[in-house]
Amino acid sequence: MIGQLTYLKDVVTLRLDAEKCTGCGMCLQVCPQAVLARENGKVRIDSRDSCMECGACARNCPTEAIEVSAGVGCAAAVINAALGRNSSSCCCIIEQPESANRDSQAPADRRGSSCC
């Protein structure tokens, strides 16, 4: 089963306002973790602990029925942020500090290794 890899319990910030949901299904299309499910023409949170807070559902919901504080679950980024280093996202932890200049960027291909 795909569900064998589930992260921590009861931590995610995902919230769904069933009142606002029109059942358009966009969130179902974009969620990479099958967190949401359709039920009686609306959507409900089916496996909350699988949510990785990517924010795709909230971004693509036309009625703003979904709320999640989106971010990248990456320890190195959290450390960099805590140390005040200018790097908020995981993919740039290899980025040089002076890379305000785009040419000196050296991004790592970490997440999304299947490349698309």
Partner: peptide, 11 residues
């Protein structure tokens, strides 16, 4: 950071 299922809140 490399994994595909961790949430920021969890991390």
């Amino acid at each position: 950071g490399a994994s595909t299922y961790t949430s920021l809140s969890g991390v």
